[in-house]
Design a protein around this nucleic acid. Structure first.
Length: 103
DNA sequence: TTTATGGCTGTCA
DNA sequence: ATGACAGCCATAA
């Protein structure tokens, strides 16, 4: 059974607790794909939101939500994170030191 | 099989 | 702190 790396990425993302966020690089590393952050982002981009994957908790290394191909999601993602208790900086950035998920 | 694309990361100035 | 450059790999056609 060849489980694509995507599945592993999904597993890691699914383990992110509410109120916490993780960067693509971190997820890639936890998934056993160090340096393949791009793959993580692409996996999420192609991931149907029906899998209940908290892709909203996945942010880039800058601590900001990744601008999706379609505008609007950015605000939605921010709203979801705020709903979980994550505070955003006035510039729309998240304090990774405080909200970055620590496995 | 090859080509093209993509929600990024890390380093340097 | 921000801006620019190159590199990595999987999916889809």
């Amino acid at each position: 059974m060849q489980r694509s790396n995507w599945d592993r990425i999904y597993e890691v993302i699914a383990r992110i607790p509410a109120g916490k966020v993780a960067t693509y690089g971190q997820i890639a590393h936890l998934a056993g794909l160090p340096g393949h952050a791009r793959q993580v982002g692409y996996a999420l981009a192609a991931t149907p939101d029906e899998l209940d994957l908290p892709w909203q908790r996945v942010i880039n290394a800058k601590g900001e939500v990744s601008p999706r191909s379609e505008p609007g999601y950015e605000g939605l993602q921010r709203a979801m994170l705020e709903s979980e208790g994550i505070a955003f900086s006035p510039l729309g950035r998240i304090d990774l030191k405080r909200y970055q998920w620590s496995p």
